[in-house]
Design a binder for these strands. Structure first.
Lengths: 132, 132
DNA sequence: CAGAATCCTTTACGATACTG
DNA sequence: CAGTATCGTAAAGGATTCTG
């Protein structure tokens, strides 16, 4: 995954499976913080510290790594303002904005069905404890 | 991530950020094969070998791991048929079916914008080569 | 405060071999 | 063919430190 050298092939007849282009979207969200960070920028550009506080539970380094990768993906852009003191903001590109739709769909799904997933996980966990 | 002990808190006022329940959905898709496997079962139960061939590029072990985890998540269920020879199939649960919507939204997004992401990545890659 | 550089730990992924 | 058991590796996440 994630080698631009191995560019995905064309869409398979069956749909999204195998090396088809739909996997590009799946691969983006396999990085833990992608969805959270993109969603955190939905209302406009933000400073890193502010964004980090809003997200919670992400280290400064990991947020930085994530933002740089999103820049490489063309989803986020960095703005530097030559003020005193200098100010930095990250915002979604037009391409990044288009990703908000699927991310919100996923978030809405979790708000509706997340509890069911948690319950299933706890059920499985209890089952494992019984079995040893 | 992924400790049932640390169950996500309630939704924050800001939306989906931090430890809110929307992250449950994000966390599901951070596993490389979740979206692909769920999507591969969209048309009904399938035998592991068949599913593996349709996906392509996934080892038998990893497919097995993924299916077991999806079982724990309540998204997939295993059917065993006591025939001769015994047959096994995996299919989506009702809960798993509901996840197809967001996954298809993400896939459709990638079909439309995936090229733009690839181009951005290649641009970034070339840039890095120039800089050293 | 932004962010680069280190170092460490974990784990998902993958290859392989073996059992029903 | 389904599934388990090992083992190795690469990469992501995270903590810490230091510099503009």
């Amino acid at each position: 995954m994630r080698e631009p050298a191995t560019a995905p092939r064309t869409t398979t007849p069956e749909g999204f499976i195998a090396d088809c282009r739909a996997r590009i979207g799946f691969d983006l969200l396999t990085r833990t913080w992608t969805a959270v960070v993109v969603f955190g920028l939905r209302d406009g550009p933000r400073r890193p510290g502010e964004l980090r506080a809003a997200i919670g539970g992400i280290s400064a380094k990991v947020l930085n790594d994530t933002l740089r990768r999103l820049e490489d993906d063309g989803l986020v852009e960095r703005h530097r303002y030559a003020e005193a003191p200098p100010r930095v903001e990250y915002g979604l590109t037009p391409l990044g904005l288009t990703l908000l739709g699927p991310i919100e769909a996923l978030g809405a799904w979790a708000l509706e069905y997340g509890d069911a997933v948690l319950e299933a996980q706890e059920r499985a966990e209890r089952q494992r404890e019984r079995d040893g």
